[in-house]
Amino acid sequence: MLAIYKKELRSYFTSMTGYVFIAFFLVIIGIYFAVYNLFGQLANFEYILSDASFIFVILIPILTMRLMAEEKKQKTDQLLLTSPVPISRIIVGKFLAVTTVYFIAMVIISLYPLITSQYGLVPFKIAYGSILGFFLLGAAYIAIGLFVSSMTESQVVAAVVSFLVILLTVFMDGIAGMLPTDNKSAFLILAVLLLVLCWITYLMMKNITLSLLLAIVSEIILTAAYFLKPGLFDGIIIKITGWFSVIARFSDVIMGVLDISTIIYYVSIVFLFLFLTVQVIKKSRWS
């Protein structure tokens, strides 16, 4: 694991990627810092992070696109997967390496509130709370990017897909607002969603009986729940999309609410996508 971590981290700094990422990150945050804190004479660092959170859409794909896609293309995954290192450690090593690059950038920006504090009172708790939240948010996006990268051989495809996925999470709140809230349409949307999920399991497992059975059973349960307890479906779509809206949690953090559930939320997103990445690689060995 350490070997992979060291090699990945090096490769960010022997190629341009690491420097480009950090430079771009610092430029954007720096512009906001100058406009809000220096010229605008605001003491709140969290506003910067809130408004600058769109940079993930562009920057995370740059960091993560080559992680697994390049290994597959160059066939170097043959070296990694035939070495006596479990797949999970390979993935965690890679994740930690990217997160370290991101961490370096975060360390630099965490000096900014100290600069502002020279000229007035800074709400340090909220400032550093949101920096921690911002870091966790980025780590969650990195895990998603790593997952996308493991599904393709092409860096470009990996970059575009992770760009779209992150963009979707940013807009998720807006999209959820447009969806109907009454329980009948919620029921229909869920029913369709379940069918799609069963179809995906069919595509992955090529087992028609199992997928059909799964579809029938889940639809029956759903219908039963709808007729027995229709109240369960009130606004459920918004709840579900809200759960996937990685960035929505961050707006709570900006307000000064960094509770344990938010931290657990981001950490579990990281674990979920690292787990999925390992599964994708294991799966590709079988087909």
Partner: peptide, 21 residues
């Protein structure tokens, strides 16, 4: 196809493999 990392030197690469193993 030898699984080589084009951006490493030969010694760095073999060092990495030794760590992996």
């Amino acid at each position: 196809l030898p699984p080589l990392y084009p951006d490493l030197t030969v010694r760095e690469y073999l060092n990495f493999v030794a760590d992996l193993k």
